[in-house]
Every structure is written in structure tokens, then in C-alpha cells.
Design a protein around this nucleic acid. Sequence first.
DNA 1: TGGACTTGCCTGCATATGCAGGTAACATCC
DNA 2: GGATGTTACCTGCATATGCAGGCAAGTCCA
Lengths: 149, 149
Amino acid sequence: MSLPAQFPAMNLPCICSRVRRTARRVSQIYDRHLEPYGLTISQFGVLAQIRIGGSPSIGELAERIVMDPTTLTRSVRPLRQRGLVVLTPDARDRRTRRLALTEAGLVAFQVALPGWAAAQHEVSRALGEDASKMLVLRLDEALVRLSPP
Amino acid sequence: MSLPAQFPAMNLPCICSRVRRTARRVSQIYDRHLEPYGLTISQFGVLAQIRIGGSPSIGELAERIVMDPTTLTRSVRPLRQRGLVVLTPDARDRRTRRLALTEAGLVAFQVALPGWAAAQHEVSRALGEDASKMLVLRLDEALVRLSPP
DNA sequence: TGGACTTGCCTGCATATGCAGGTAACATCC
DNA sequence: GGATGTTACCTGCATATGCAGGCAAGTCCA
């Protein structure tokens, strides 16, 4: 692209900066659409995952969404404080704590869903339908290849 | 892909979650490679941009790297505290403050460059050279299309 | 010159992110 | 049953991220 002389080892622009930039921009769009519902895209994602995942533990959910468990712990906290999520010790193994949506949590998710859909639509429209699908496929594939052994 | 019944509006899996996940994973790889040099990929990126950008202001640099100026202000702070970067008021317009590398900052950047290169190599190797280039191109294009008017 | 508007940056607030290290609960071997 | 090790989670630390709002410097116009 550019910067040839200064970067001897750079035969390719920084992949990391591109991914992070895009993540910032895309997150911003989703956050704006979800803001009227009082949720961030991160929080909405946690609610959605708990909903489809049938009471996952912190560790299970963290692995599924490829996030550090400590980060997930903290992401869940404001949702617990607002009564959208409960975290109850597993009966069989009291170390594990299982996540579940409350009634209010389910409602909050369903109410915010149009906001998510609007954001998704805006982004996929801006990128083009085909490019969006391709991007998602490439990112999913990239994630698999980048997963630690 | 999946989740059809629960997600009426979802004819495509969430783009945002994919981009964020990938950003987390990729950042982690770069951060690990840069950790011995005492820099995060974010900080390394700021040093690199100041280096090639000839004393940009906070606002200019924030726009160039598509980051909120307030975030950049805070990212710069630890670099200033460590004496790698200086922030001096512009002579012509005392509102703007111009970023510059110190001698120590330049050295720190050059010393850490092999760490960055190793991370870049690991990622581009995992994805495949062609896929990496394609991904960067797609992300650059996506960013343009997603930019606010 | 002085008021009105604009611009550039910063702080306060809240959340996001991951690593190191700690604690409690479980599992295993003797 | 008790020492040892493992597992699941959490807190402390540091940085990352963006919005709202505030302050100071600059611009414009009467």
C-alpha cells in the first residue's frame, strides 16, 4: 500500500489495525441503534447467547463467543444489577455458576431486537449483501485458523 | 446458518460479533508478541503513526486511524508518561497540540518492530498470504463504505 | 471591540478487554 | 480422611473505547 522504506518487515499493511478499526466502526453503528433500548451490542449479544444457549456457565459462554471469562464476568455484572440476568450456582458442581435470562431480560432482548436488526441492515446494506456474507465467512474461517491449539 | 426460528429478522449471522471476536483474537496475538517490549499493539500503532505522520495533531491522527479523539488522548497519556511521546501546543493555533516522538520513543518503536513483524507473520501465515491480503482489502473497503457522511 | 459561533482538546462516566493471581469447590491418590 | 492437584470463577491492575459536556482559543460580524 505505502510505507515501504520505513517498514522493512512490512510487505503487507497491519492486519491488526484493520480489524480493530472495523470493529470500532461497526460496534459504533450497532451501539447507536441499540442505545434507545439501553443496551450495548456487547450486552445484547450476551442476552442473545444466553437465550439460545440454555443456561450456559461463564466458562462455556466465554468459550463459545471467544471472549476471556473475566471479561464476560464483568460484562454480565451490569445485566445482573439491572435484573436482566441471574447467575446461580450449579446444583451438581457448586463451582460453576449458570447464566439465565429473567423475564425482564427476555423482554429487554425482544424489545431491542429491532434495533439490532436495523444496525445489521445498515451495515450489510453499506457493504453489500454478498460482500457481507463473504466477510462473515472469511472472519469465521479466520477465527478457526487463529484459534490457539 | 442457524437460529432461524428465534431470529425473525436474522437472515445473516451478526456481523458485529464476528468483527469484534476477530479483533479480540488478533489483538491478543499482537499484544503477546509485543509484551516483551512493554507495548500494546494500540500503543505501537500510535508510535508508528506519529513516526510516519510528521507531528500530527490529536484530531488529525484520530481521524487518520478512525478512532475517537478522546480515546486517542488517553492512549497517548501512558506514552507521554513514559517519555516516548511529547505533546506540544502548535505555535500558530494554540488550541491544537502536536504529537511527536522523542528519541526514546523512536528507539522503543524500532526495538519493538520485530515483535510486530512476528505477530503479523503469525497471523498472515495462519490465514494464508492470499487470504490475508484479501481480508485487508475487504476491511479497508468496508471501512470506506461504513464511514459517516 | 465585543458578542456569537466554531473548533480542538480534555475530563467524568460507563463499559470493554485481558493478564496475574487469589479463593473455593471438586477430584485423586495414598 | 488428608495432602495434592485441578477447575471455575472472581478481583486488582492497566489499558481501550466512546459519549456528553466543559473550557479555552480562534473566527466572524456588526
